[in-house]
Design a protein around this nucleic acid. Structure first.
Length: 971
DNA sequence: GCAAGGACGTA
DNA sequence: GTACGTCCTTGCA
């Protein structure tokens, strides 16, 4: 017998990377890799003819459930790169293809393809058969037999080499320096960075082979380390004996997996047109169909498309009918099993890193080009370097570069000082400090390293460094960001490097505050003596490297790779560019408004003193409360949790309607002074003298749900609701010759709710383009939309928002100024009219209590550590927040994806429009005057399609766009 | 000089 | 009822 075992997952990835991303015509399903897979399978059966023809054959896959995250997880166990999202839907299709070609498709939960291959190989050998494993995976080389009965076949085309390359005992020896039977011993010693095998640090393939050839195996070697002459090598082996043993466990394939199909069932079957053509037709592979029709002498037209696979409207992917639910159940039932390889790897890395002591004496100060070159060379040798820029401030649009630090391995570090001044610490500063490289020369030398795609640069908060480096003409390709890794894994619980290293490494690290001082005497980093600066900066790079070694493996172990690699990491440079562009703010407009507001506020102030009968600080809620409720003795006063009188706008509004004119005066005064203090007076101070524009800073890692936040200044809360407030928006303008475009998602959160909770009535309403609040009102109160009183619609709108916020009768009553019982009735009616909402809410409550987190449709986890708090109020709060988080968060994910794709989309359309701002469901652009009409459709389409193809929403997404000279006009 | 609380701007 | 950031006052160091 001759058994041929095909490494199916290897074929898929090979097809994906080698071929264009074709899609199925009728529904744009990605199928390029399926086409490649089919062709490879067919070609293989043509190649293996005559003496090499198989009597038995099967295609083996890594196990995968139906969700893309589980797919990635399974592929990761095989140590392959993360699955790109276009590839995900193609995994199940390649299984179907295998069956269509008459081959058994084999995969097993809990086992890698390699284990199954090892098992069938052993079974075939037992009966004296010959085995060919179609794969180029070196992990399978341990199965090769010196007598030629088991060989690998590498079919991947390589230039200058024959199309088919057999790998027997000699080829294995060439690669590992030992025969197949010792391959696992060598692999256990030298490890493999890509394969998650730790190995023994400092031992490569050559050394490993030498040791195994001398001692025979790992155990003998470990028992006789005293005979090893090189002290470093001996020490490495002695301290890492356990790592070597664990590594051997990781690399050894399991030859006794409980396979379900007996060998007899793998007997080669002829291709059946009745199986093949319905598949090809459903896939719409008409060219292949025609070719095989000729070869098999069959008429492809005689069979209908397989209805299971043919194009059709996508299934809803809501919370309860999502395959993810099945995957979750599978994961839960698997609890208690031994750690998977990625989890084990992450734990091992963490332990190893924690054991490395912090030693400042190992750090270097880089003084000249030769020394800098040694660090650059080290970065090239490792393929990876942690780095950090030191600057004179926290705002990367104004701060100057002072130095750059590097670390190429945990424990080492170097600081390159470039802009330190003679440290008098006074305002005059002094000249440049001695012993620093010329800034320009050093940057020219470093530039290629940062631009090199093959060298991974690790940062903490890369967006800051990208902004600084861009201003110095340095481009960064290939990077990781610990802050974003931490955010992807744990949410916004850690902000600074100090917090991360304290938590994960148990290391405090030097404090920047001690270095710079505080208050009046605070220095900039440029004024810190180089020797002190170097300790701090090099340690920063060192800790950055260490943290990366802890955090990065967790991505795979915890299935957060897709979120990080397809959303968080690519977004950072997009935000850096938006921050760098800034937006023009017209000083004159703000100044005029400020004068107007100040006059009116002064008049109101005088009026308030008159009405109150005394002068007091209008800005003091404390004094106001005492006047209103103690001195004037007005009814309706409530106390805040600290016992102070409550004087919020709603309280004052109440008093005003009860005929207290002072209350109205205060409300109006507060509005005007708020507008002055926060906007008309504050914004001009943010105009950057270098660019003449206002540059906000976005925080990508601060919001629980996945939204961005904006600060210094916050451009996400520029007023819009009142007439006076909107005037501030007229100061945000396009420069001469340009126009602003605002594009905003219409009702995105309600649409997301309709999708994830699968509310048919809501979906239908969106499909028909109805006024959603009026439709809700009409459903609930039985009032026709035509001629509906505005109050009825207002109530329905409040309820819709209430649902998104995790409604409570208390909150709704507050919002609408009605009785709690009445609000409760509204909610009951809503639930009755829109069945599904309650199920959604119940599911989120259940999940957050059981798991401690809920998820967005893109797999972002939102953690609630207090879900089972003993405080009822806190528990209720978590319940509402856990209902809101998937809605707000999924909408946030969608716009993040839109932003990532926007620049390439604009470029592809030949537009030079620039994305400036994001306000949660709105994007602001600047575009050449006259180009608005051309670019708006591109923007709208990119935003509307942003969830695809990862998530096919079951509601339409709508985006409105407007162009005008200023933000008020465009909105 | 700093932190907490209240108030209020946005989605 | 969700999610933020900023300004101002107050109270303490």
């Amino acid at each position: 017998m001759h058994l041929v075992l095909v490494d199916g997952s290897g074929f898929i990835f090979r097809a994906f990377h080698a071929l264009p991303q074709l899609t199925r015509k009728s529904d744009k399903l990605p199928v390029g890799s399926v086409i490649g897979f089919c062709n490879m399978i067919w070609k293989l059966s043509e190649d293996l003819s005559g003496d090499d023809a198989p009597t038995h054959m099967a295609v083996i896959f890594d196990y995968s459930s139906k969700t893309f995250r589980d797919e990635i997880y399974a592929e990761y166990k095989q140590h392959r790169p993360p699955a790109p999202e276009e590839l995900v839907p193609q995994f199940p299709l390649t299984r179907a293809a295998t069956r269509a070609y008459g081959l058994p498709s084999i995969e097993m939960e809990g086992y890698e393809a390699d284990d199954i291959i090892a098992t069938y190989t052993a079974l075939a050998k037992d009966v004296g058969g010959k085995v060919t494993i179609v794969s180029s995976d070196k992990d399978l080389m341990q199965l090769v037999e010196p007598d030629g009965s088991v060989r690998l076949l590498d079919t991947i085309p390589r230039p200058g080499q024959p199309p088919l390359r057999w790998i027997g005992s000699d080829e294995v020896f060439a690669k590992f320096g030992v025969g197949p039977e010792k391959v696992i011993e060598v692999q256990a010693l030298c490890g493999d960075a890509v394969d998650n095998v730790p190995g023994v640090p400092g031992i490569g393939v050559k050394t490993a082979a030498e040791l195994i050839n001398t001692f025979g195996d790992i155990e003998t070697l470990l028992s006789r380390t005293a005979e090893i002459k090189q002290p470093k090598r001996r020490e490495a082996l002695e301290t890492n004996a356990e790592l070597a043993r664990i590594s051997k466990r990781l690399v050894t394939l399991n030859r006794e997996t409980p396979v379900e199909l007996p060998l007899e069932d793998l007997v080669r079957q002829p291709v059946e047109p009745a199986k093949l053509f319905p598949f090809l037709k459903a896939m719409e592979f008409f060219a292949i169909s025609k070719r095989l029709g000729t070869l098999l002498d069959a008429d492809p037209e005689a069979w209908p498309a397989d209805p299971e696979l043919a194009a059709k409207p996508a299934e809803p992917v809501g919370f309860d009918n999502n395959a993810r639910a099945e995957a979750r159940a599978a994961r839960q039932s698997a609890e208690g099993r031994a750690d998977s390889a990625p989890v084990l790897h992450a734990k091992l890395e963490h332990e190893k890193i924690k054991a490395i002591p912090l030693d400042h004496s190992k750090y270097e100060i880089i003084r000249d080009a030769a020394q800098l070159q040694r660090w650059i060379d080290a970065a090239y040798a490792e393929g990876i370097v942690a780095t950090d820029t030191e600057t004179t401030g926290l705002d990367n649009q104004t701060a100057d570069l002072v130095g750059i630090s590097f670390s190429t391995a945990p424990g080492n570090g170097a600081y390159l000082p470039l802009g330190h001044t003679e440290g008098h610490g006074d305002l005059l500063g002094g000249g440049m400090a001695e012993g620093q490289m010329d800034l320009r020369a050093a940057l020219e030398q470093i530039k290629p390293l940062f631009a090199d795609r093959s060298i991974l640069k690790i940062f903490h908060n890369v967006k800051y460094d990208l902004g600084i480096l861009a201003r110095y003409g340095i481009e960064v390709r290939s990077f990781d960001d610990n802050l974003l890794l931490s955010y992807s894994l744990d949410g916004p619980q850690f902000n600074t490097m100090g917090e991360l290293s304290d938590h994960w490494l148990g290391l405090a690290g030097m404090s920047i505050k001690e270095l710079l001082g505080s208050g009046k005497t605070q220095k900039t980093f440029a004024q810190v003596p180089i020797a002190d600066a170097a300790k701090y900066a090099a340690e920063d790079a060192d800790l950055t490297f260490r943290l990366w070694k802890v955090l990065k493996p967790r991505l795979v172990a915890e299935n957060m790779t897709t979120l990080y690699e397809t959303i968080e990491r690519p977004l950072a440079p997009v935000l850096a560019r938006m921050e760098g562009r800034g937006i023009t703010v017209d000083r004159q407009i703000l100044s005029r408004l400020s004068g107007d507001f100040a006059q009116r506020a002064a008049a109101l102030e005088a009026e308030a003193y008159e009405l109150a009968g005394s002068n007091f600080n209008l800005g003091s809620p404390k004094q106001l409360g005492e006047i209103l409720f103690d001195r004037m003795g007005l009814p309706g006063g409530t106390k805040t949790k600290t016992g102070a009188w409550s004087t919020g706008a709603d309280v004052l509004e109440d008093l005003a309607t009860q005929g207290i004119p002072l209350a109205r005066t205060i409300v109006d005064w507060r509005q005007l002074t708020k507008l002055m203090g926060t906007y008309t007076d504050a914004l001009p101070s943010y105009i950057n003298p270098r660019t003449g524009r206002v540059h906000t800073t976005y925080s990508q890692h601060s919001v629980l749900t996945g939204r961005l936040s904006s600060n210094d200044p916050n451009l996400q809360n520029i007023p819009v609701r009142t007439e006076d407030g909107r005037k501030i928006r007229t100061a945000f303008v396009a420069p001469a010759g340009k126009t602003l475009i605002s594009a905003d998602y219409s009702q995105i959160e309600l649409r997301v709710l309709a999708h994830i909770a699968d509310i048919q009535a809501l979906k239908d309403a969106f499909e028909e383009g109805l006024d959603i609040h009026a439709m809700t009102a009409s459903e609930m109160f039985g009032v026709p939309v035509e001629g509906m009183p505005s109050e009825v619609r207002r109530r329905a709108k409040a309820i819709n928002f209430g649902i998104i916020y995790g409604i409570s009768a208390f909150g709704l009553a507050n919002q609408l100024g009605i009785e709690r019982s009445e609000a409760g009735e509204y909610i009951k009616t809503y639930f009755a009219r829109f069945p599904g909402i309650q199920d959604y809410m119940a599911e989120q409550r259940r999940k957050v209590k059981a798991d401690g987190y809920v998820e967005t449709i893109f797999g972002r986890k939102v953690n609630f550590p207090n879900a089972n708090s003993s405080h009822p109020a806190e528990r209720s709060f978590v319940e509402r927040a856990s209902i809101n988080a998937p809605i707000q968060g999924s909408a946030a994910d969608i716009i993040r994806r839109a932003m990532i794709r926007m620049e390439p989309a604009l470029k592809a359309a030949g537009s030079d429009a620039q994305m400036l701002l994001q306000v949660h469901d709105e994007l602001i652009f600047e575009v050449d005057e006259g180009k608005e009409d051309a670019v708006m459709p591109v923007i709208v389409k990119t935003m509307e399609n942003a969830s695809e193809p990862a998530v096919r929403l079951t509601v339409p997404i709508k985006v409105d766009a407007h162009a005008a000279r200023d933000w008020d006009g465009a909105h």
